[in-house]
Amino acid sequence: HPTMELLLTELVQTLLALNHKEIHDFVKSYKPQNDEVGNLRILLFGPTGAGKSSFINSVESVIQDRICGRAGTDATSAGFSYTKKYKTYKINKGNQSHCSFVFTDTRGLESKKGVHLEDIKLALKGHVKEGYQFDPERQLKEGDDSYNSSPSLSDKVHVLVFVVPANSINIMSEDMPKKMRDVRLAASEMEIPQLAILTRVDEACSGLEKNINKMYKCKHLKEKFDELHLQLGVPKNCIFLVKNYTSEIDTNDKMNAHILCAIRRMINFGEDFVNNL
C-alpha cells in the first residue's frame, strides 16, 4: 500500500501541475448532470471544534479569492458545539450567483451530549428540514414540524464528509470514533460516498506556517492520518489534509490548492452518486 506521503503528495502535485485557474473554474462552473438535483449536497460531520464551519468559509474564500466568514465560528466554545442548527450554505461565486454544490453544517459531536446520531442518519435521507434546532435531549421524530416526510433528491445528502482535528485526534473520547463509524456504516448502506478531512494541521505539526506543503513530510501528521484511517475505515485516498483560513488576512495559492483538491474529489464522488440514481 502506498504511504500517506507518497499518495497525498501525488494528489497535490497533480493538482499543482494542472492550471490552477482551470481547477478553480471547474469548481465554479460545475453543474450536476442529473436534472433532479438542483445542488449537490455535501454534509459535514465530526467533533465539535473540528473546523466544519471554518471549512465552509475556507471554500468560499477560495472561490471568491478573498477571506470570507459567513458560517459562524467560535474559538471559545470549550467543548460545546457553536453550530446548533441544521443549516445549508450556498457558496457565493460573485455576480449574485452560486456554485451548484452546497454544504450542510451540523451540530458537532460532544463528549456528553451533542448531536443525536439518529438525527444525522435522518439528514442523510433528507428527512431534516432547514433550520432544525438540534436538541441533545430529544431526537427528531416523524410528525415533528422539522421532519421532512417527502424529501426530494436535492434534500438528500450526496456526499458525507468527516471533519476531524489533527491536533486532538488522539485525545478524543473513546466513543467519538465509534459514533462516526456508526454514521459511516449507515451512509454505506445508502451507498452515499464518504471522505474525511484532517483540519488544524498547523497546530499538529510545527513549522507549517512557512510552507504548508511540508505537511506531507510530517511524521506526526502521518501518524494522525493512519489513525483516522484505522478508526473510520475511510480509504487513504479519500482522506485530505487541510489548513482552514482562520488567521490569514489574504488567500494564497498553496492553501487554496489543498482545499481545491478536497472539493474536487467531493464533487466527483457526489456526481457519480447522483448519476447512479
Rank of each mutant, 00 (worst) to 15 (best):
R200C: 02
E209K: 15
N92Y: 08
D175R: 15
S149V: 10
S173I: 07
P2Y: 00
G94N: 07
D202R: 05
R70F: 01
L11R: 05
L208V: 07
G69C: 02
E142Q: 15
F273T: 11
E203F: 08
I212R: 01
L16S: 04
S54C: 11
P165L: 00
D35C: 06
Q64R: 15
V59K: 06
H20S: 11
H24K: 12
V161E: 02
S111D: 15
S146D: 05
K52L: 07
M190Y: 11
M176Y: 04
A196E: 00
P136K: 10
E191R: 14
V161P: 04
Q139P: 07
Y245K: 12
P177H: 00
V157Y: 05
F240A: 01
G69R: 08
K93F: 04
M190H: 10
R107A: 02
D253P: 09
C238G: 02
S111A: 15
G108R: 14
C205S: 14
L16H: 06
S54T: 08
V59W: 03
A186P: 15
F225C: 02
R200T: 04
A187V: 03
N268A: 12
E271R: 09
K224M: 11
D182W: 09
F80C: 03
H1Y: 05
G270H: 07
C261L: 06
K224A: 11
L277I: 15
E227C: 04
A71H: 10
K179L: 07
N19V: 01
D272K: 13
T73I: 13
P193I: 02
F225K: 05
D226Y: 01
I42G: 06
I249P: 00
M176I: 15
L208M: 10
M266D: 07
L153G: 06
A17E: 04
Y245W: 09
E5R: 14
E174M: 14
